[in-house]
């Protein structure tokens, strides 16, 4: 049975259509990723799914209950972890959890033990009574997630939970998410990090410009690219001049560039690489590094949208 079902979600802010017909479903225990660059419509989509933002059209149900900004019962099934840290700095972790636990209607006799469990899961048992303004960024991030877990939701929505997190804390967060998935919680995970989507998600939706461009398992998505490889060139000099020169090679499927690098999507990188380096030499643009990457979600995104995830 699907925990989350959404279809035809639409949201426009004046003339800007932020989300345009987004729809997908998540089963119990499944981790579903929304992968896209900043501004792709990920946060707007999950804001409508969490009942924070009113949609202009479309429908969301969680565990069979329709979710809107006015529903209250269905929202108790959802755990929401905002992208930015959303905790009260002048309260301790325990007090933050107590407050939200009461709002979610956790019975008083259960709340204390549940808070202890969550503090244990997020590794803050020994600092639970300290004010959160004294916490490190990573500790705040973990509490941010802990609040979303507190009421044991059927669906947990995590909006880019690792943004701005150090590698150690990031890994701890990813491990927590994996554990939650194993326990049977349905997870909706937004990210613009390809590695996270590949590691965590059973299925991924590629979202860009407010629309879902493709959806499926990693294997299904990579098959969309075929045998295409991504050649990543480190560039010393004008990347734009190199791109212009490379566009004369017909076998190249797409080229994107940013400061200091050029990414080229091709079929058969080993065959085309010498020719590409020749062109680079002729243009006088220095090459500082070459990397060939086999198809992954990054190349899927490049293939589908013609731009890199970091754009």
């Amino acid at each position: 049975m699907n925990v989350l079902e959404c279809e035809g979600l639409l949201k426009a802010f004046d003339d800007l259509v932020a989300v345009d017909g987004v729809g997908f479903h998540i089963a119990a225990g499944e981790t579903y990723g929304l992968l896209g660059p900043n501004g792709a419509g990920k946060t707007t989509s999950i804001s409508m799914i969490a009942g924070i933002l009113e949609s202009d059209a479309g429908r969301v149900t969680v565990a069979g209950t329709e979710i809107t900004t006015r529903t209250t019962d269905g929202k108790a099934q959802i755990g929401y972890v905002p992208q930015d840290i959303a905790i009260y700095p002048d309260l301790s972790a325990r007090e933050n959890l107590q407050f939200f636990g009461k709002l979610y209607g956790i019975p008083k006799q259960r709340l204390g033990s549940r808070i202890d469990e969550v503090l244990e899961v997020i590794g803050l048992s020994d600092r639970g009574d300290d004010r959160t303004e004294e916490y490190s960024g990573g500790m705040k991030r973990r509490l941010n997630i802990g609040i979303g877990l507190l009421h044991e939701p059927t669906l947990l929505i995590l909006d880019e939970p690792t943004v701005g997190v150090d590698p150690q804390s990031r890994n701890a967060i990813l491990e927590s998410v994996e554990q939650l998935g194993r326990r049977g919680t349905a997870l909706l995970y937004t990210t613009h990090y390809m590695e996270e989507a590949e590691r965590l998600c059973d299925r991924v939706a590629i979202i860009d410009g407010g629309k879902i461009r493709a959806e499926g398992t990693r294997r299904q998505l990579v098959e969309l690219v075929g045998q295409r490889d991504t050649i990543s060139l480190g560039v010393v000099g004008s990347a734009a001049r190199l791109v212009e020169a490379l566009e004369t090679i017909e076998e190249i499927e797409s080229i994107t560039s940013s400061e200091g690098s050029v990414e080229i999507l091709v079929e058969g990188a080993s065959r085309l690489l010498p020719r590409i380096l020749d062109v680079a030499q002729q243009t006088g643009v220095g090459i500082s590094g070459v990397e060939v990457v086999e198809p992954n979600l990054e190349s899927v995104f490049l293939h589908l949208t013609g731009k890199a995830l970091r754009d």
Binding site: A50, G51, I52, T69, R70, T72, D73, G74, K75, A76, I78, Y80, P82, D84, I85, A86, I87, Y88, P89, F100, L103, Y104, G105, I147
Partner: peptide, 15 residues
């Protein structure tokens, strides 16, 4: 400012 309004809006309470 602290982002907690989003949590309140997502909570199962009347706005």
């Amino acid at each position: 400012w602290y982002g907690t309004l989003l949590r309140l809006l997502a909570a199962p309470i009347n706005r």
